[in-house]
Structure formats: C-alpha cells, structure tokens
Design a protein around this nucleic acid. Structure first.
Lengths: 251, 251
DNA sequence: AGGGTTATTCTCAGCTTGAGTTATTCTTAG
DNA sequence: CTAAGAATAACTCAAGCTGAGAATAACCCT
C-alpha cells in the first residue's frame, strides 16, 4: 500500500496500460409530445449497428464541458444562438473496467436539455443520427453501458424539473402555461391538474414572467387565447414543484 | 471533424499525450459538533506542504467506487464492518486541462459520510492525515482544485439531508432525536426548532424506528432520558425535510 | 348557432409548517 | 435535600400549500 504522495511522486502512470477519457451526451428534447433522446448508429465494431450516445475523446487541451458541447454540436449541426439556449450539465462518470472491450475507457456523461430541434441528419456529419422516443428505447440495441447512462439522465431530468426552472429549457423563448405543463407531463409521464399547475407556476417567485401578449389564436381544438410568458430569473424553485409521491420510489 | 465511430475505429489513443484518472474522496464526519473533512498533507511537489483530499490513481482492473473506498480505507485505517457503515456516492468529475501541472489528470470525486471516527493517524499509512473542521478551511492552503471539490461536496451533503435519510449515517447505530437534530443543525449551519423537528422526524415514514429503549441517563445538563431510535428503511423522504429557504440561494 | 375544448379563476377541505406553550423528567448547584 | 435549570415530548393555533372539483369565459369546428 502506498499513499497518494508516494504514488504520484514515484510512479510513472505511462507505465500503466493506457486509459482514455471520453464524454458522452444524453441530449433530451420533446418532440411530438414525447421525450426523445439523441442517438447515433455505430458503423464500426465494437457494437457495430448498435445505437449509442453521441460522444468521443476529450481532446488534449479541451475542458470537459467544451468537449460535451462540441460532440453535441457535431451531431446536431447546431451552433450560435440556438446552441447557447441548450442547457448542459455534468451527469455522472462511468468507468467499469469491462465497459469497453478495447481498452480502459472512462466516460464522463453530460446531460443536455434542448427545445424542439429538427432531425439532426441535415447539416451534421453524422450519417445515422436521430432523435428516438424513450418509449421506443426498450426495443433498441444500445452499445456499451449507454442504456444505464440514459436511465440515469432521465431520472436526473425528472427530479431537476421539481426544484429548478429547467422545464423552460424545453420550450421556446415565449410559451404558455399549457406548454410548460406539457413538458412536465411528458417528462414525468403522467397528467397534472391544469388548474393547480397554473396556480402553482404563477405563485413560485421567478419561475415565469408575463409578456403581456397572448397567443394569436386559441388552441387547435378550441379554447381561448392563452397568455404568453418568458422564463423568469429564478435558479431554484421555492417552494419546489413536487411530483406526486409514488410509494414504490420511497423504499 | 470526425464522428465517434471513425474516431474510435481509426485513431489510436496511445498516440495522444497520456492521460490519467484518479479518484478523490471528500469524506465528511461530525466531530466536536462541527462538520469536518478528511485531508492529507502533501509531502512532494507539486503543492508540497499543501493539504489535499485523499485519493490516487484508479488501478487497471479496479472499479471507480472500489478505488474510492480503497483510498479512504488506506488513509483512515478503517475496514470491515465500520467501513461498511460509511456511505459512498459519486460526486462529480473534474478535468480542466491545467488542474494538475504534471499532465492531464481527470479526477472523479466521491463523497463519503461517516459517523464520528477517530483521528486517522493511528493505524493508517498516511503520515499527515487529519480531520479538519470546515470553519478552519478558509485559512488552509489546498492543493489543485480541491477547495472547489470540497465546496461541491458540502453543498451535495446539505441538499441530500433534505430528501434522503443520510443524516442517520452521521450518527451511531442507535441515536436520539436530539442527536439527529444536531446533525442537521451542524451540516446546515443553523438551529432548528426542537419541537417541530421532533414531530417531523417521527411523521416521515421510514426515517426512524423506535427501539423501545431510552438513554441510560438524561443529558449532561439535565433533562429526561431520551428515547432511542434506529435508521428506518426509507431511501427517500416523503415529504422532504426542507431547510428554511434562503432568498439568496434562489436567484 | 351550437357543441366541444381549453385557459383561467374560485372554492373548500385536508395537510404541513412555523412559532409558541405546557407537562414531565432529570442533572446539578447550593 | 431542595430548588433551579435544561431537555424531551406533546400540544395548540394560525398561516400557507395541496389536491380535487367546479365555474366562467373565450375560441375552434362543423
């Protein structure tokens, strides 16, 4: 047994089997009223033909968050202002020795939240990138431990909706309370009481601020014009917008 | 620009400058009514004489969590059942290119919560390991980005007390409600209403379960014998035990 | 013009919270 | 031995928040 000092001082890590560090991005968006995740189809082994998260090696002088944004941008063709509206945060790291059959690869996963984006095929250099609905995920063959990473990302997203204004990242610059409610219902996967949600959203300080304007028309199936809102300046929601407790998740 | 498949398939990462992956452990405990963190004093450059988190390289066939536990055990001399009572969880990863002057080192930080432990000098192989009160931290010179890592760990601990039974990890097997309250007050850094805390702890399902026994004596300055409790089987607290909102943290 | 749909506002009971109080048990100082 | 001080545990009460349901009004479509 040696301690850190001796280890760092007396040992050349280059003598170790090489390791590599990648970033993988769990990019979530809402399309067609479904939560969708960005996947690319692998062309080469291992896991050729399997679907995988966008990601790749961190470059020598590159910061982790920068690498995650770069990988996301490469696959989606997104840049400039639209890219700035996408929220990135570090999710977790994965480093089981056998997670990649070629060598020891540590992956630092990032979570990205984007408003409704176009199919990524146009303008990107990824031959086979696509948004996939979460409901279609169980039947897909996923590479490496990416299924686990996606599950972790979804759980993070669900809980972050509770106590941060993250939901506003899934909608456009201006939105209605119903738009916001649709985000919560989609991510949490069950319907909410429209009246109570409305009351709650307006009562939490800094969640949304009114623009004074309304939608041009009512909804496609009727109803009055809805008021438009912008994201407020809160970074945490107090009191939080809690999802209904499910007994199973507690124990 | 190449995508992940081409990159992984066509590029030998060994041609890159070598990178290394370490784990660092933010181990928190409560001693003398203060939140304390485990630090070791570096003997060799860089940052010789500075204090640092226990940590070291992840071994070739070693899982991340295992590496974190190993590093913690090496510094504290802890093993067996006492070590099993320590809670470990992954905190975050740090990989800024210039965070270590020698080479590109990615660090995956873990957070550990332990009940009152002895000074780590006895039985460990770390010449200069010690528990340091958080209040003494600002005047210490810390190596690398370890100050930032500790801050992230503390914030994580504070918020995990709210919605998990983590506080029971800072006390012994059996404890009184007052013991538990002391944990919350110490970690959150401000006093709580004893009566309300008592009511709340007993009303959250699965947080604690009574043992039927009481303490042998009353408190050192008087008061009746307190009932003893054990940790319950809840993994999440519903409803959560929220810390009083501080306006500054919200925006 | 009328039926169905939706945004927004109300009502109301039940629950939780913050703050304060009370009864009781125990330690310590005198 | 006794009184003062301290802490546990239980209780009260007002205020705020939640879930459920309903009312109102604006708007789409046929």
């Amino acid at each position: 047994m040696v301690n850190e000092q001796e280890f760092l001082a007396g040992y050349d890590p280059r003598a170790y089997p090489a390791v590599a560090v990648t970033v993988d991005v769990v990019a979530l968006t809402i399309r067609d009223n479904e939560l969708q995740v960005l996947l690319i189809q692998r062309a080469a082994p291992p896991f050729a033909g399997f679907w995988a998260l966008p990601g790749g090696f961190v470059r020598p002088e590159e910061d982790l968050g920068v690498a995650a944004r770069r990988e996301f941008a490469e696959e989606t063709g997104l840049g400039g202002e639209p890219l700035r509206r996408v929220h990135f945060e570090q999710l977790a790291s994965y480093g089981t020795p056998e997670r990649d059959p070629r060598m020891r690869i540590f992956s630092i996963a990032y979570l990205a939240f984007a408003p409704d984006l176009p199919e990524p095929t146009a303008g990107s250099d990824a031959g086979d990138a696509q948004w996939l609905a979460l409901t279609a995920l169980p039947t897909r063959e996923l590479a490496f431990d990416h299924r686990k990473i996606i599950e972790d990302g979804i759980e993070r997203a669900r809980s972050k909706l509770e106590y941060t204004p993250l939901a506003t990242r899934f909608v456009g610059e201006e939105f209605t309370i119903a738009d916001l409610r649709a985000v919560y219902e989609t991510v949490w996967g069950h319907p909410l009481h429209a009246g109570n949600f409305h009351r709650k959203v307006l009562s939490v300080p800094g969640l949304v601020e009114g623009t004074g304007a309304t939608t041009e028309h009512g909804g496609p199936r009727g109803g009055p014009r809805a008021r438009l809102y912008r994201a407020g300046d809160a970074r945490l929601l107090h009191p939080a917008l809690l999802r209904p407790a499910r007994e199973e998740t507690v124990r």
